[in-house]
Design a binder for these strands. Structure first.
Length: 271
DNA sequence: ACGAAGCCCTGCAAGC
DNA sequence: TGCTTGCAGGGCTTCG
């Protein structure tokens, strides 16, 4: 399930294949994604040159002269760069064909992903405007989290996963960062001291950066632009490890559901 | 404003 | 073995 590190890994992987290339074709095999793929996508993209590929939260922004393609991978989506006429597999929903006979191919079995067109400033798009700061930016720190948590009774884990609080932290990395910071995922967000938020912010940054370095986490669907998986799965300390020994104290990790998401933590190390 | 629940969808695992 | 059922999961949307 692509979170920020997987999307950033994808961005870095596809960038050299896309930058400066002209779009020569668009193939939509299945328009029914999270929202329908725009019917006039081909007309808008044809002949456009790709100026940049950026990321905001878990969205990829493919910048063209006339506007921006917004891409979201949902939870099972992946992007690959393939030969332009490579036969399509099941769930290969959209191809953006490029001038050098390659295609950017969106594959998404569960179709929770999205491909949208934005003619204006994408950062003011309704999906992007409400997003909180990027966790890897300097503006994101413990003081910011502490300030946002004032008066909140919500558990800290769903608080972290709220994209309006901080953008791009999903279930895997929220579990990992809270373990690293020694904070119980069920603790009310407003009942955590400023200094502990400082530590948590640093742990979030460290976990995300380490995951990007490993090419992200592959649990089932995620692959990079060339089909390779990410290797951060080997580094996961608590996620999907309920009942197995805590890597720090060796007592069994405990699983529970918090905000309708699988949560794993160590009752001894996380308070 | 806040928090909780619903919904979209498919693959997989468990149960019969 | 083959079918049915249940569930996970990001995040927008709706409800209370």
């Amino acid at each position: 399930m692509p979170e920020l590190p997987e999307v950033e890994t994808t961005r870095r992987g596809i960038l050299p294949h896309l930058q400066g290339r002209r779009i020569t074709g668009v193939v939509v095999r299945e328009p029914r994604l999270r929202w329908p793929v725009p019917e006039d996508l081909g007309r808008r993209l044809l002949g456009q040159r790709i100026e940049a590929v950026q990321r905001r939260a878990k969205y990829l922004l493919v910048r063209l002269g006339a506007g921006t393609v917004l891409l979201h991978l949902g939870m099972s989506g992946s992007l690959r760069v393939v030969p332009a006429r490579a036969p399509s597999q099941a769930h290969d929903h959209v191809d953006i064909v490029l001038a050098h006979d390659r295609a950017l191919r969106l594959h998404d079995p569960r179709r929770f992903g999205a491909l949208l067109w934005c003619g204006g400033d994408p950062l003011t798009h309704p999906l992007l405007r409400p997003l909180g700061p990027e966790p890897l930016n300097d503006s994101f720190d413990g003081d910011y989290l502490y300030a946002r948590a004032r008066g909140r009774r919500l558990a800290v884990k769903p608080f972290l996963m709220d994209s309006q609080v901080v953008a791009g932290v999903g279930n895997i990395y929220a579990n990992e960062a809270l373990f690293e910071a020694g904070i119980h995922p069920g603790r009310a967000a407003g009942r955590i001291a400023r200094a502990r938020y400082g530590r948590l912010a640093r742990c979030i940054k460290r976990v995300l950066e380490a995951a990007i370095e490993q090419g992200g986490t592959t649990l089932r669907d995620f692959v990079r632009e060339d089909g390779r998986p990410g290797y951060f799965r080997n580094e996961l300390r608590v996620y999907a490890r309920a009942d197995r020994p805590c890597p720090r104290c060796a007592r069994p990790l405990r699983g529970l559901v918090l905000g309708q998401r699988a949560t794993v933590f160590c009752p001894r190390c996380q308070r």
